[in-house]
Amino acid sequence: MANFEIIRREDFSPVTYLLEVRHPLMAKAARAGQFVIVMQSEQGERIPLTIADYDRKNGTITLVIQAVGKTTMQMQQECQVGTSLYGLVGPMGIPSPISHAKKVMCVGGGLGVAPIFPQARAFKEAGAYVIAVLGFRNKELIFWEDKFRACCDQLILCTNDGSAGMKGLITDGIRMALEGHKNIEEAIAIGPPVMMKACAEATRPHKIKTMVSVNPIMVDGTGMCGGCRVKVGDQVKFACVDGPDFDGHLLDFDDLMSRLQRYTKVEKMAAERWSDSCRMTKQVGPSALDALLPGQVEQKDLLELPDPFEEVQGG
């Protein structure tokens, strides 16, 4: 059995973490915009995660994950340096086409900031003027600011509460970029579907080609189950083999968001059951500390988010 060893881990916030996994062949093959499917254990589910970075020299790929559902919570607890993943397959999907556009806007919201990074870097390497618009809920959740500063010509940082960068939604940042630059040729947006939809609407009047990266629910990731089908224009496409990048002005976001709700009920159930079982093994007897356990926080988080997969993937 192949061994997908975790060689580095970094915790960005109480719910966001980075895993660097050894896979020399994949590090060599991976390109911006592609994703992998991970199985943490033999009993686990297959979850799609966008490749946030790859290191061809050291033979590793990097994943940035948010603990929102049962699997990502369990991974947060168990995926330590030195342990291995049970399954890791990829790189999947069609790599993002890196055009020769002269000025490009890369928009990343929340966890979508991670997968937008290889695209920003690829555009920079192709000689483009790169404007990055990154949005986070608050200062604590910010990560990779330095990495973006190193490869972007302009960085617009927004937080919902104004604790860092400009205060406002990511669309405010987009508006600022559009006002500052009349000649943006292309935009790429990765994040929750609501955010990508807003971004596509913001660029539509300017007729700027806007690509979005979707992450619907998948099983195999090889074009076999059809679970990840999305509507693009009047066609049905499979995100895993025809995407994951699609034209944001043609994609049916409402259909995408509705389909992401498919398993919400069972997912919530599984997450709750898992937190409960953790609590039982960790705590001896009932404790007032219960209220402070991560399980509680995450459950609240779950209710707020449109879909665990979406946030996990960051787009």
Binding site: Q43, G44, E45, R46, K70, T71, V219, D220, M224, C225, G226, G227, R229, K231, V236, D255, S258, R259, Q261, R262, Y263, V266, E267, M269, A270, R273
Partner: peptide, 30 residues
């Protein structure tokens, strides 16, 4: 045909046979 609750036989069978959804929640795939 894109409503929730419409799925391909491939998805149904893969979830059930390969991913052991029949043993949910012992296996994670719902």
């Amino acid at each position: 045909d894109s409503l929730n609750g419409v799925l391909s036989a491939n998805e149904l069978l893969t979830r059930c046979n390969l991913m052991n959804a029949k043993a949910f929640p012992k296996f994670d795939t719902p």
